[in-house]
């Protein structure tokens, strides 16, 4: 494991921890998109189904369990514990527009026509668009809690760092993963606007407000 991948996984973990702490501390899930969290839960469940038959390492297994359980815990916090704080009226992105194209892409572009490979490909495409409801919600409200902004930033950094990881692995191991590489490029592009505003506002101590 190289440094890019390790830091990527850490920032991915950090993003989830930030989100859980925010919801618990403020006893509110205001500003957090339930739809995005639901899509991530779907991403993890469809991708990590291999936990039962494909052992990689203790690290890998531990992280898979962490991502699945922590995301389902967020769904629980939003749906049960702090339900009144979440306003579905501003979380209006149609998730069919992400799920359907991901399913089509998974059927066309995959590593083989087995249930496992199709689900894996589906999860990769789905992940590339899963942040859209959250970004859409941010655009509707125009501003966000600092922690929500840090959450999205940490998530963007995670995806960005996987790109140098794949370049590094291509150079040192000759390993190629075109599906994940392409999906990650798309995903990082979706964050570019957000990164720009984060840099120009949040980095200078200002409130996150859209122009």
């Amino acid at each position: 494991m190289n440094i890019f991948r390790f830091l990527a996984d850490l920032s991915h973990m950090a993003s989830i921890v930030i989100l859980i702490l925010q919801i618990r501390k403020t006893k509110s899930a205001a500003g957090v998109s339930y739809k995005t969290q639901f899509l991530y839960a779907l991403v993890f469940v469809t991708r990590y189904i291999d936990i039962f038959f494909h052992y990689v390492s203790l690290y890998n297994t531990f992280m898979k369990i962490f991502f699945v359980t922590s995301t389902i815990y967020i769904l629980y916090l939003m749906r049960v514990q702090y339900k009144p704080s979440h306003d579905p009226n501003i979380d209006t992105f149609r998730i069919e527009y992400i799920i359907a194209p991901s399913a089509v892409l998974a059927l066309i572009i995959n590593h083989g026509y087995t249930l496992y490979e199709i689900l894996w490909s589906f999860s990769v495409w789905l992940e590339s668009g899963a942040i859209l409801p959250q970004l859409f919600m941010l655009q509707r409200t125009g501003e966000a809690e600092t922690l929500t902004v840090h959450y999205i930033f940490a998530l963007g950094i995670y995806r960005l760092l996987y790109i140098p990881n794949w370049i590094y692995r291509y150079v040192t191991e000759g390993r190629v993963e075109p599906i994940a590489f392409l999906a990650s490029l798309i995903q990082t592009a979706l964050y570019s606007d957000f990164f720009y505003i984060y840099y120009t506002k949040v980095m200078q101590g200002k409130k996150f407000e859209l122009p």
């Binding site: 996984d9 991915h12 991708r47 494909h54 990689v56 390993r175 190629v176």
Partner: peptide
């Protein structure tokens, strides 16, 4: 590696 899928990442 290369052609064969090797999903060892998260």
């Amino acid at each position: 590696s290369g052609d064969k899928a090797d999903h060892d990442e998260l």
